[in-house]
Design a protein around this nucleic acid. Structure first.
Lengths: 191, 191
DNA sequence: AAATGACCGAATTACTCATTTAGTCAATTG
DNA sequence: CAATTGACTAAATGAGTAATTCGGTCATTT
């Protein structure tokens, strides 16, 4: 079969979004990098935003997979959540595309980027919520509101990883796990 | 004695900062509202920022006073922190000036405003830290790092009061107290 | 001595117009 | 003839610039 043009376009766009962000990426540029006529892009994607969305959807899958891989079923719930969340947030910290988008969100407030960041947060919250519900069912943790609990866990992690080091020495991964246990978990655990 | 020009200037500036924010407030405007020549302002304050700083310093005192008033010594540490923090954040939510500055911080990133918001956060953290150290000394709570604990408490409260309601029904004061107890306190308390 | 407001240079804003861009579609290709 | 293309268009952008505004000063007034 001939080269997969759709894949070429996705790869080109990913590269360009990672390098220049959403706004500064032009469709002409994507077409050029992909070695494809601009019109071809529009046979696969309705518009620039849809192309962007498709890329973000894969990113979300990739994140979930990374989080799942960081856990294993022998771990306690508390260790699972710590490793999963840490993995996701580290992913955010290391991945070119997420770094660029994070920056574009706060520096320029590009609407399409804002939207996508909400989607990303929702995906993380949904993922967390799933784990929490499962843990409640198994009696690993107390009854609690899964939405609020997921929200609090995420906020705490973001605060410890991103916000704390704005004004202090960064915390080690182990310290974060310990703090998480001390503040959240000892209050949640059945034992 | 004649009218207190310094006080007039402070009142005029507070009014204008509250109404238009820091950047959009002109010294001519402050002078006009205060019924004072512009030059007079500069006999009391080195520049616009110093005038702003003095106003913020009183604001911080006012906040601390409000927090202190919301507590009484018969309360448990957990109730004290809840009431104090809630008071401070509600203050932020209701006070014209803080609302305007909060908005100016994220929408325009005015440097002078950013600086002052850091100062405000530091004041809250310092205040909290004091209460935490006292509680540790009295054996009311476990040993813990007071800086990190203050930081986590503030972040949790801000998340529950400001961030949660961006995408959900606002939480009642009682719910917030309960969540705070459930997630933070049960893990901290000696009993 | 205290207060003032006209004045100044720097910074910001309003505006304009040439350029760029997202998306279309008639022509082209294999 | 289905897939691909890039010239084309209307809309958005932003560089350049003229005009205004602003923070701060200081000679004058009270």
């Amino acid at each position: 079969m001939a080269i997969d043009r759709k894949q070429l376009i996705i790869e080109a766009a990913t590269k360009s979004f990672s390098l220049f962000g959403f706004k500064a990426t032009t469709m002409d540029q994507v077409a050029k990098i992909a070695n494809v006529g601009k019109g071809t892009i529009y046979t696969f994607f309705k518009n620039k935003e849809e192309l962007f969305d498709e890329i973000i959807s894969s990113l979300i899958s990739e994140m979930k997979r990374a989080a799942d891989e960081a856990m294993d079923s022998t771990l306690s719930f508390h260790e699972k959540v710590h490793r999963g969340l840490y993995q996701i947030l580290e992913f955010r910290l290391k991945h070119q595309l997420t770094i660029k988008l994070f920056q574009e969100e706060k520096e320029m407030g590009t609407p399409a980027v804002m939207e996508v960041m909400i989607k990303l947060e929702d995906a993380i919250l949904g993922y967390l919520k799933e784990k929490i519900v499962a843990a409640i069912d198994k009696g690993e943790i107390q009854e609690c509101n899964p939405e609020v609990t997921a929200f609090i866990m995420l906020k705490l992690y973001v605060a410890l990883i991103f916000d704390w080091e704005k004004r202090n020495e960064p915390l080690e991964k182990e310290e974060i796990a310990k703090l998480f246990e001390q503040y959240i978990f000892k209050g949640l655990s059945n034992r």
